[in-house]
Design a protein around this nucleic acid. Sequence first.
DNA 1: GCCGATCTCTCAATGATTGAGATATTCTCC
DNA 2: GGAGAATATCTCAATCATTGAGAGATCGGC
Lengths: 163, 163
Amino acid sequence: MVEEGPVTQGPVTQREFGRLLQGLASEMNLLGHDFAADSGLHATDVQALLAVLRAADPPGITPGGLRAELGLTSGAVTAVLDRLERAGHVHRTRDEADRRQVHVHYHPAATRIAGEWFAPVAECTDRVRAEFAPEQVATVVRFLARMTEELAELRRQRRADRA
Amino acid sequence: MVEEGPVTQGPVTQREFGRLLQGLASEMNLLGHDFAADSGLHATDVQALLAVLRAADPPGITPGGLRAELGLTSGAVTAVLDRLERAGHVHRTRDEADRRQVHVHYHPAATRIAGEWFAPVAECTDRVRAEFAPEQVATVVRFLARMTEELAELRRQRRADRA
DNA sequence: GCCGATCTCTCAATGATTGAGATATTCTCC
DNA sequence: GGAGAATATCTCAATCATTGAGAGATCGGC
């Protein structure tokens, strides 16, 4: 009873806020695990497939981009893409302008499969979003974008410091 | 302007919203990778260590709890804990009431090391939080909590359906 | 054109993860 | 109380993802 007091800014300590963020990230990770298990893929392959799916496909994401986005070494990315390609989820094309680069594209079937599997998740998201007023949703969106941006900047800076 | 037809809920489409969430989760994952690289640990070990750190320590988290929270098999959890214990980050105690169970506790040193490494991340979080009014932060907190809860419920239900 | 830089892939070595089974403990129901 | 089912953790051999160094191919600046 005593600890339920404050409501606005004070009640959520930095630590609790971190816990919330970690908890959500963890839960999303587990969704990936489940999708992997259901699809006969591995957790890493799913992360890669999702990264490919959420990349703009006109250009398509490069193995190097995946390397940066998944935190893997180049050999691991090649292996992941080999597995995804062998399973028929993605295919590679070589950039004609810069022939060193490769672009990874998803197959329509992969979109459909992932879309169907994640449909209940999307419903989940919609359900939660519906609990918030439009301007509140906008606030959440702004927060998510800013947080992501700020963390990316932090990592970028750290990388620069290391060199 | 023209192609924004299927607006499910306000200005942000469901797809964009999912992208935002995935992007943030991905970024947080990469932070874990970097911490792992700097600490001589593996990505999984870091996830486990963070899970131990954010668990209430009076009881301490069990290997089974970690198994559920990381999506690993029992053998993998044992291996992870062996590594973390060997590195001096955590230690195991056996529950006296139910001697089948084990509780994992972090060493104070682990808290300090992780705390120091993640201090800039915490500053990041604070910086972003400072950009929002108290009631907006409260909205974000509520959203994070509800989203996590809903996703956890979805996974729980799926697990039940499978059986 | 040439040299350094960039991007991807190869490959052997390492080691993390799996999955079935063993062990120990608790719970349930007669 | 005691037999059997259920639960929690650990063991271990087999599998396979990941690492890390290096090769091959291509581009950009001078």
